[in-house]
């Protein structure tokens, strides 16, 4: 009974940490290649987030399932093969379902294989934890990654094209910030978002008295 309660609270912790406290982009600064390359529109960012989520969750479950069978010496190559399998599935699925998005994302779909976030979760977490914990961790990390991609993609699309999900926001006289859809815009915007995130974090740690007593007790 108590064992079960402890277990579910741990599951919850593993799930939540990827979304905020150990967010793969804002805190761990992993997976920068897709983060900067394909976030020039919200749709592309979301598609990339979903594809990465599928690969991350799938391979985490599989790695966790086989964790006692995989020899230590060849574990990295084994993880890569597992990840590559899911990437291939995601690649073909996207090509069949949304060919336009697939064309825009181009090589970056295949490059999910080398996304250090995914390999990192296998090596650091999935290979050492039972399936349900690994699943909670992977889902949390995937949501955190997709959320970060979406933040960047949405801001870049709003400023760079004056639209969100292709819907025009400012009318036809909008002056697009060309730099935002170009690679430097990705770097700049990511910098600003990291700055904002760190600022929020800093305020939280600097002023613990702001947390209401009720929340502190609960924690």
């Amino acid at each position: 009974m108590t064992d079960h309660a402890v277990d579910s609270s741990r599951l919850y912790d593993e799930f939540v940490k990827g979304i905020w406290k150990e967010n793969p982009v804002f805190v761990q600064v992993l997976g920068m290649c897709p983060m900067l390359a394909v976030t020039n529109s919200a749709v592309n960012a979301l598609a990339m987030g979903l594809a990465t989520a599928f690969v991350l969750i799938g391979s985490s479950v599989l790695v966790s399932l086989f964790r006692r069978l995989i020899p230590r010496q060849v574990r990295i190559s084994t993880y890569i093969i597992i990840i590559a399998t899911f990437v291939t599935v995601a690649d073909f699925t996207l090509e069949a379902v949304v060919p336009t998005v697939h064309r825009e994302l181009g090589a970056f779909i295949s490059l999910i294989v080398v996304n250090c976030l995914i390999l990192g979760r296998q090596e650091a977490f999935a290979s050492r934890n039972p399936i349900h914990v690994a699943l909670a961790d992977a889902v949390g990390m995937a949501i955190g990654f997709a959320f970060a991609l979406f933040c960047l993609g949405a801001t870049r699309e709003i400023l760079g094209s004056g639209s969100l999900f292709g819907v025009s926001l400012f009318g036809e006289n909008f002056e697009p910030w060309v730099i935002m859809v170009l690679p430097p815009g990705g770097f700049l915007m990511l910098g600003f978002i990291l700055l904002f995130f760190n600022w929020v974090q800093q305020r939280r740690t600097l002023r613990p008295s702001r947390v209401s007593p009720a929340t502190r007790e609960a924690a």
Binding site: G162, F170, F174, E175
Partner: peptide, 8 residues
């Protein structure tokens, strides 16, 4: 020109 807009 208004902010975010081109001049008409």
């Amino acid at each position: 020109a208004a902010p975010f807009m081109q001049s008409s």
